[in-house]
Design a protein around this nucleic acid. Structure first.
Lengths: 188, 188
DNA sequence: CCTAAGGTAAACAGATCTGTTTACCCATGA
DNA sequence: TCATGGGTAAACAGATCTGTTTACCTTAGG
C-alpha cells in the first residue's frame, strides 16, 4: 500500500493509521515499523522518539477547511453533515487531538499544544463565517457551534452511531436563527 | 487517607483516584496496590484482573443526579453550572467514561457498555425534565443538551479552562427558549 | 493455646515496550 | 571500481506491565 512512497512518508502513514485506529498507547513502535515495511533502525532515523512520531501524526492531521464561496450558514451546516459522514463510515474513533490529550498524561507534551491550536483554528473558522452573517456575538456563537461538534465526536465515539450528528445540526440551526433574528431585530 | 476503610474499599478508592487522574493505561496494578496500602496478593484477591478493577471503577462512578423539586428549566441550567464548577476545580480530566472508551480498544469491554448506559441515563434525566416543560420534541432536545455537556467536557479537557461551560449554558437557554416558544405558539 | 482466615512482602514468570547496536546488503555516482 | 549513504534484519538492554507464587505474619474465636 505504501510501497511506492518514500520511507518517511510510509512511516507517517502507518503511524497515522495505527495511532488513530488503535490509540497512541496501544500501538508500539515495532507495529508501526512493520506496517510501514521499514526497519526499526530506519524509523528511529526519521523519528528519534515515539513522541516525535506522535507530534508528526497530529501535525499531519492539521488540515484547514477548504475555503468556499457558499453562503456562511450553508457552510456551517454542511460541516455537520461532513461529520455525520465521517462518523457513519465505521472507522471513526473520535477526535485524534482529544484522544491524544486523553492518552498522554503530560500537559507539556507537544500534543496538547497542537490540540489547543487545532481547536482554536476551527473556532476561528466559525467566527469568520459568523462575522459575515453579522450575528451579534460571533465569538460566543463560534464556541457554541464547536461545542456541538465536540459533543458529536465524543458521543459517536461512545455509542458508535452517527445519530447525534443530525440532532447537532438541528441545534446549530436553532442557534443560528436565534442569533440572526436577535441581530436584525436590533438593527432595524 | 484510606486507612480506616476496609481493603476492598481502599482498593477501589485508589483505583478511582489513579485511573481518573492519570488514565487507565498509564496506571499499573502495582501503583494501585501501593496507593491503597495493600499487597498485590490482596488486590488480586478482590479483583482478579485489571479489567475487573476498571469495570468496578466505572461502576463506582455511576451516580444518579439527585432528584429535585426545582423547576425543570432551573435544574437543567444548574447542571451546566455544576459542570463549570467541576472543570474549574483543577483536578478535572474529562469524562471518565469517554476516557475509558478512548483508552480501551476493545468495544466488547464492559467499560463500553457502562459508558453507553451512563450517557443514556443522563439523556433520560433531561428527557424527563423536558417532558415536564412540554416541549415539542423532548427526545431530540435531550440529545442536544447532552451534546453541549459532552462538548464542554472535551473542550475543558483540551484547553484546561472552564470558559466553554458558560457558553454552553447560554446555548442551552436559547435551545430551551426556542423549544418552549415553538410549543406555546403551536398550542395556543 | 492454637488454628485458620486474611493479610504482608517480595521474588518470580513471561510478555511487551522504547530505544540501541551489530553486522550486513545494495545501488549510485565520482 | 569502489566508497558511501541509506537501507534491512535481528539481537540486545533495560524498564515496566499483568498476574502468580512462596514464605511469613497477625489476630480473633473456639
Amino acid at each position: 500500500m505504501y510501497k511506492s512512497a518514500r520511507p518517511g512518508e510510509r512511516i507517517l502513514a502507518a503511524a497515522d493509521k495505527l495511532f488513530y485506529e488503535q490509540g497512541i498507547r496501544a500501538v508500539g513502535v515495532d507495529a508501526i515499523a512493520e506496517e510501514a515495511r521499514v526497519s526499526k533502525r530506519t524509523l528511529y532515523n526519521y523519528y528519534p522518539t515515539k513522541d516525535d512520531l506522535i507530534a508528526a501524526y497530529l501535525t499531519g492531521r492539521f488540515k484547514q477547511i477548504a475555503p468556499s464561496d457558499a453562503p456562511a450558514r450553508e457552510q456551517i451546516l454542511a460541516y455537520f453533515d461532513r461529520i455525520a459522514a465521517m462518523v457513519a463510515d465505521g472507522s471513526f474513533r473520535g477526535c485524534p487531538y482529544v484522544n491524544a490529550v486523553t492518552e498522554i498524561g503530560d500537559r507539556k507534551h507537544a500534543a496538547v499544544a497542537l490540540a489547543v491550536q487545532f481547536k482554536e483554528q476551527r473556532r476561528q473558522w466559525y467566527r469568520a463565517l459568523l462575522e459575515r452573517l453579522q450575528v451579534k456575538d460571533p465569538d460566543t456563537l463560534a464556541t457554541q457551534l464547536q461545542l456541538l461538534v465536540e459533543g458529536v465526536l465524543a458521543t459517536a465515539l461512545v455509542r458508535g452511531d452517527p445519530g447525534a450528528a443530525h440532532a447537532a445540526r438541528a441545534a446549530a440551526e436553532v442557534l443560528l436563527d436565534a442569533a440572526v433574528a436577535r441581530n436584525t431585530r436590533r438593527k432595524r
